[in-house]
Each structure stands twice: as C-alpha cells, then as structure tokens.
C-alpha cells in the first residue's frame, strides 16, 4: 500500500520535471538565446530612448569647460560624476549618448514607418490601376535602383540645405521601392485568388479589399522587409550625420557624436567608441531579430 503510494508520488514528481525540461528545450529551440538577448537589448535601448530625460544624469548640452576631455570612470583621471567621461566641451558623454540613442532610434523608427506606408500604398496603386500608374511607379523603382539612396539624399541635402523635417522625410523615402515591389507583385497574384474576387463580388470597395483582405495576407513579407530595412535606416542616418550632413548641432545623434569625436581620437577615444558600439549593437540585434523573423515567417525571401 505504502509502496504503491510512493511509486505514484515519485512518478508524479518526475513527470512535471520532464515536462519542464522539454518545455525549456522547446522554448529555446523556438527562441534561440541569441535572439532573446538581441530582443532584450533592443527593448533596453527603446527604454533608454523613451525615458531619456529621466535617466540621463546631465543635460546633454550643458557645457563645463573645467572638466574637458575627462576619462571614463575606470580609467586614470575619471570619476563617478561622469561615468563615460566628458567631451571637448566638458559635456557628459553618457548623457549625450542617451539622447543620441533617442534621436537615432526616433529617426530610424519614423523613417521605417513612413517608408513602409509610402511603398505599400504605391504598390497597391500600381497593382490596382495598372497602365500608366504602374509605369510611373515602376520607373520610380528603376530610378531608385539606379542611384544608391545615400547619394540621392546627399544631393538633396546639398541642394536644399539641412533641416530635421527634410532629413526625416528622406529617411522615410529610403527603401520605399522594396515595399512597393513586394506589394505590387504579391497583390497582382492575390487579386486573382478566390478570396479577393469573392469579396469584390460581394460589393466591397477596392480600399476595403486591399486594406482588410489583401494586406493581412501579404503582411508577413512586409514585416520581414521592415525588420531588414530598419538597420539600413540606422546606418544611413548615422553615416550622413557622421559626415556632418545629417542631424545638426545642437541636436545630437549617434553618427553626429562619432563624427565630432573623431577629431579627438588621439586624446579621448571614448567620445567616438561609445556611440559606435551603440550603433553596432543596435544594428546587430536588429539583424539577428530580422533573420529570425524572416526564417519563421517567410523562408523563401532572401
């Protein structure tokens, strides 16, 4: 009697443990640790960007010439007042880094969203109207593919001078052609599918057919493209800012910080290295996540 009970007890004790192990195994099979780390890091950066004003120890523009080019805390000459040291004007590098992350993420986010909406809308228009509308959109795609967007934005910024609205608008135009191409191609094939024809015959307006019925069906390809587009936008923004043609002082972005810090490479490497590492980790995590999302949602895309 007691034996039997014991057997049952051990049995019931072992079972959940086994389940737990299997579950852990399955969990990590589905979400590899590297993907989780990348996601956590991105969440952390978003957290920093959102609460920048609360976290940053100093105002990112406040100048203190008495503590110019002070080293980070773990090096000789550093102290706890400035964890990551100070720059050539005595501004706190950590605070500037936090606000740069905010600016760069904001621009990349807005750019990605604008590009996705613009490209998808143009793709739908091309697929719906065909004819000359299609020709115009395709010519635009050809044009975009014939010149690297970096060069186009460099030219436009040269001609029109720089302001933040134009700059964010440019980041939004970046990559529109890939959304347009994907949307156009997938919509052309979706229109011929039963469900689109059925909804259409039932009397739904074209806008309803596209937004409520076709868009959900092609969204996985678009989401994959968004995750692949985002790191590109971050790098485009920071490259232009690095060359002094993007975000202008007194505003600051990661590329802008790196560009200005370059002049102090021999005396104060920390001004350049921290923002550089921040860009690298942001694009790296986004690429890892993007690859993972692509493999899960749409293995046929490269």
């Amino acid at each position: 009697m007691t034996d039997k009970l014991e057997v049952e007890l051990t049995h019931s004790e072992e079972k959940p443990q086994e389940n737990f192990q299997i579950r852990i195994h399955r969990f990590f099979g589905r979400y590899p640790p590297i993907v989780i780390i990348a996601a956590l890091w991105l969440l952390f950066m978003i957290f920093v960007a959102v609460f920048a004003t609360l976290i940053s120890p100093y105002d990112f523009t406040s100048i203190d010439l008495r503590t110019r080019l002070q080293a980070p805390v773990w090096m000789e000459g550093g102290d706890w007042n400035h964890l990551f040291g100070t720059d050539d004007l005595g501004r706190d590098v950590l605070s500037r880094l936090i606000f740069s992350i905010r600016m760069s993420l904001l621009i990349a986010f807005l750019g990605t969203v604008i590009g996705a909406i613009l490209g998808t809308a143009l793709g739908f228009l091309a697929a719906h109207f065909r004819g000359w509308v299609d020709d115009v959109v395709m010519a635009g795609i050809d044009f975009q593919a014939s010149l690297p967007f970096f060069i186009i934005s460099l030219t436009l910024l040269a001609f029109f001078g720089n302001n933040l609205v134009l700059f964010i608008g440019l980041m939004g135009i970046y990559g529109w052609e890939r959304y347009a191409r994907i949307t156009r191609g997938l919509t052309l094939s979706a229109i011929t599918h039963g469900y689109a024809i059925a909804v259409n015959t039932l009397g739904a307006t074209p806008i309803r057919v596209y937004l409520r019925h076709i868009l959900p069906n092609i969204s996985s390809a678009l989401i994959v493209n968004m995750t692949l587009n985002f790191p590109g936008t971050v790098i485009l923004e920071s490259s232009l800012s690095f060359l002094g043609i993007g975000v202008q002082p007194p505003l600051t972005s990661l590329g802008n910080m790196l560009g200005f810090g370059r002049d102090y490479l021999t005396t104060a490497w920390w001004i350049t290295v921290f923002p550089g590492v921040a860009i690298f980790l942001a694009t790296l995590s986004m690429s890892i996540l993007g690859d993972w999302v692509r493999d899960r949602l749409d293995p046929t895309l490269m």
Binding site: S238, G255, G259, L265, T272, V273, F280, L284, S287
Partner: peptide
C-alpha cells in the same frame, strides 16, 4: 557575416585608425 554587415563602415574605419 552578420557582425560584418552590422558594423557601420565609418565606425570600423575609426576603430582601425584608433
């Protein structure tokens, strides 16, 4: 390869100089 793709070339250049 993913790391090579993610490192912005201007940062890589500056790091090499450093």
């Amino acid at each position: 390869a993913v790391m090579g793709l993610s490192i912005p070339n201007f940062f890589l250049g500056v790091l090499l100089i450093l």
